[in-house]
Computed example of a mutant assay.
Amino acid sequence: MSGFRDKGFGDRLSTAANARKAMLERVRAKPGADDPAVIERKSARQAVSTAREARLAERETARIAEQARKAAEDEARQVAEHEQRVAQEANEATAKLEAAERQVALEAEQKAARDARYAARKARK
């Protein structure tokens, strides 16, 4: 094993110290809150968030309008069905009344014919 090298305690300490320095440098290199790039990214995120909220509100408004339209259509359909049912019931009642009147008239004619036959038979005797 020619590539194996036993690291000593000092090597491990220096490696850890170098890692801490690199992390510290990364934190220091980070731009502050007053940096123009940070402010620009923050305003871009805010604009995206505002646009998203506007789209959500628009969708909600459209959904409510669609529900109102469907409710109005359902109510109009129910009113039309009710009116149709009432008209049909009125037509049926009129038809029944006319049928009853025809039946009464027919029975009256039959009774008159029967009475005429009976009277004719009595007259012959």
Rank of each mutant, 00 (worst) to 15 (best):
K21I: 07
A22Q: 06
L24Y: 00
E25W: 01
R26D: 11
R26L: 07
A29R: 02
K30M: 05
P31Q: 07
P31N: 02
P31D: 06
A33I: 01
D34G: 08
D34C: 06
D35P: 02
D35Q: 02
P36S: 09
P36L: 11
V38T: 14
V38A: 09
I39C: 11
E40T: 05
E40C: 06
E40N: 12
R41F: 09
R41P: 03
R41C: 09
R41Y: 10
K42T: 15
K42A: 15
K42H: 12
K42I: 10
S43D: 11
S43Q: 15
S43A: 08
A44C: 12
A44L: 10
A44Q: 05
R45I: 07
Q46T: 09
A47K: 00
V48A: 10
V48K: 09
V48P: 01
T50W: 06
T50D: 15
T50A: 14
A51D: 11
A51M: 04
A51H: 12
R52T: 06
R52M: 13
E53K: 11
E53Q: 13
E53L: 15
A54S: 10
A57L: 13
E58I: 07
E58R: 09
E58C: 09
R59L: 14
E60H: 12
T61P: 03
T61G: 11
T61Q: 13
T61D: 12
T61E: 12
A62W: 03
A62F: 02
A62D: 13
A62G: 05
R63D: 15
I64Q: 14
I64F: 06
A65F: 03
A65K: 05
Q67S: 11
R69Y: 05
R69T: 07
K70V: 13
A71K: 02
A71Q: 08
A72N: 01
A72E: 15
A72I: 04
D74Y: 00
E75A: 06
E75L: 08
A76D: 13
A76Q: 09
A76K: 01
A76F: 01
A76M: 01
A76L: 05
R77I: 11
R77Y: 08
R77K: 14
R77E: 14
R77A: 15
Q78G: 04
Q78E: 13
Q78Y: 02
V79K: 12
V79I: 14
A80K: 08
A80S: 06
A80G: 03
A80V: 07
E81P: 07
E81W: 02
H82F: 12
H82E: 15
E83L: 10
Q84F: 09
R85F: 08
R85T: 05
R85D: 09
V86Y: 06
V86P: 03
V86E: 14
